[in-house]
């Protein structure tokens, strides 16, 4: 499965990582190498083998439905990033996190 520049751009968009034209070419080379490594898997016949997601065959533990968390908003919002576009203010207002307008 040969990778193309278009694939790189599509994947970069899905991953929300800006990639310039020149970066895309360099990335293509590197990722092609890595995919080459990965391709070794295709030689293995895995018919009927159950996929393994976890190393231990255990089941999910359940938590009691009890409120254990308190309001730490102000503490957490000390880590808010700067708003940007000329403002070094934290990107919060009235307890809300601020982002560029979300359009539905």
């Amino acid at each position: 499965m040969a990778l193309s520049i278009e694939d790189i751009k599509k994947v970069a968009h899905l991953a929300r990582i800006e990639v310039s034209e020149s970066d895309a070419a360099a990335t293509l080379t590197k990722l092609t190498g890595i995919l080459g490594l990965i391709e070794q898997m295709q030689a293995v016949d895995t018919t009927g083998i159950e996929p393994m997601s976890h190393s231990q065959d255990l089941s999910q533990r359940l938590r009691d439905d009890v409120v254990t968390k308190t309001n730490l908003r102000d503490e957490f919002q000390k880590n808010a990033p700067e708003l940007g576009n000329g403002s070094t203010e934290p990107a919060v207002a009235g307890g809300l996190y601020l982002v560029p307008k979300v359009i539905e």
Binding site: N79, A80, P81, N85, P100
Partner: peptide, 16 residues
């Protein structure tokens, strides 16, 4: 959005 690096300049949400 909530912590970590945010670009200094951006045009919209996608760009950010």
């Amino acid at each position: 959005v909530r912590y970590g690096h945010r670009a200094a300049e951006y045009t919209d949400l996608m760009d950010m």
